[in-house]
Design a protein around this nucleic acid. Sequence first.
DNA 1: TTGTACGCGTTATCAT
DNA 2: ATGATAACGCGTACAA
Lengths: 342, 342
Amino acid sequence: MTTIKDIARIAQVSDATVSRVINDSPLVKEETRNKVLEVIEQLNYHPNTLARGMKTKKTYTIGLLVATLTNPFYAETAKIVVDTANNLGYATILCITDNDRHKQKEYINILKQRKVDGFLFASVLTEDKAVRELIKSGAPYLLFNRRFSSCQDVNYIVLDNSAGTYMAVEHLIKLGHKKIAFIRGTHNFSTSVERFSGYKKALEDYGIPYREEFVVDGQYDQEKTIHATKILLNLPTPPTAIVCCNDLMALSAMEVIISANLKIPEDIALIGFDNIDIAGHSLVQLTTVAQNKSLMAEIATQSLIKMIEKTQPPDQLVQLVLKPQLIVRKTCGHKVAEKLQK
Amino acid sequence: MTTIKDIARIAQVSDATVSRVINDSPLVKEETRNKVLEVIEQLNYHPNTLARGMKTKKTYTIGLLVATLTNPFYAETAKIVVDTANNLGYATILCITDNDRHKQKEYINILKQRKVDGFLFASVLTEDKAVRELIKSGAPYLLFNRRFSSCQDVNYIVLDNSAGTYMAVEHLIKLGHKKIAFIRGTHNFSTSVERFSGYKKALEDYGIPYREEFVVDGQYDQEKTIHATKILLNLPTPPTAIVCCNDLMALSAMEVIISANLKIPEDIALIGFDNIDIAGHSLVQLTTVAQNKSLMAEIATQSLIKMIEKTQPPDQLVQLVLKPQLIVRKTCGHKVAEKLQK
DNA sequence: TTGTACGCGTTATCAT
DNA sequence: ATGATAACGCGTACAA
């Protein structure tokens, strides 16, 4: 392993000079700079980030904590984070929490030991002691996609999830639907909670009574969603439309509806959330609420790094709520048939 | 930031003793050990991995280089790698290469500077100078999923891709198909090359002449696959079956076939490769070649870490070729209609 | 413009 | 069983 000393020896200068060259210090003669650069090139020398980090207290590394990668939303998100961070000179340590508090806590410790410069949480639960403590410790961090239920003093960038489902339900109502069901996600994800509240608010605003039997739990889980959908279909008066907390759940609901020999959208309209790639496939054509994932992930990464580099005043909170967009495809059809309106 | 010295001072022992406690050395009296542990607990002390790495030359970090995360195959793979590594005490730095030589080279340098203990390449091209050099330098590494075209002295774990398409084509032939097309992937991915050779071999073994016009380029790209499929459908004598180099391409081909008002499998049978989640969806029901991604990723990670920890003799190559499995679903149907057989 | 010397937090070697 | 000290590779204050 070649070190700064090897370079110094061969270039016949001191370690300090080599260090200056590496760090683009202006206090070095053009001539010696070139001589040093030459040797660096020759020996294919690369400074040791660890040693550098010991002095500077900077590792140029961030930690990204996501619940899962099998949900395309997080996969796409992670890609943007890694790319953006890399462009700004930061490496990304990936941690997969499975929505498990303990795993997340463990990962936080690992990242702390590795002295990462900042923490990017894509999937916090509605409350989390370990994350709160980390925040209190003053470490640069940012929550995105999901946030706490109480977030006054917390940095976050999220979608206006409530507005998203509101638009979806509104769209269905304008299509003539009155019996609109909702398949919920997990109760301790802010996305899920907020999407549910948007559903309720839209019903309320349009004077449609809230019916408890139309709200079932899918918990972002395939099995549970299948079960929940079956319950909806077997209701004495089943819904004419179903809004799902995300696309993956809508996909599962779709399977149940089809195997019950019902037609989408003729018998049942369906709307998802996230606009994952497959939702646009001609076989699927899922109406859904889109969020600009790339933008969110990019801004999140940039903001975090600004915080790290103190470009942004440390006491100033980052709190951003992005607007969703309804993507109308085939699964909610046009006007609903008269017979279903009753 | 609390360091080993703080602990030592408060516990009234030397740094060395604290270090011994941290590293579970037997050479420390039970009494003092407890005293130290208590202080560690109190101050919530965590050893600095960087400083440790400086001495031990071990960072307990690996680099994972994947082409993309938007392909579910890599997303699932990355999840397993991260989990497996974590269980063995290693963190994972994620790098996304976009199949770009230069990006990959840049990432290799970044990882070298960070002194990662090993490199896991999920998506090398059929040849790559930067990777070859890394290998020559003696760093622990493992190629998986894709490998070089010439691999005598290289560690790799891959699927028997050739056997995979062979099984697919064989299945189609036994169903009565004779006009079987193949949509190729990118020429400099070993997966693509090997899958193509399996296609050719099956035709040969069953005495079906190879037809150049039946082989088109999809290059693992949506647009290109759509274009390629259109070409196939517009042939004077179009194929009765299409084998795609992966599921994502099959999904795209499917869109074209459907929008041409052709039926799958009645008019055209379709087979993919990878068995991504969505392939099993009731709307899709794609026949495909499955590989045990999880197993491959897990073995790969474990093998790499064995190499790092020298549990495995360093001169012994890891070369593993896993067997694929044909998953028969609806997109290739039963016996093909007489009229198509001609 | 350049060099010397120290310290970052830890482990390892040598004493004791 | 424990402590003092050097070393890992680098950056930087200070001196020259």
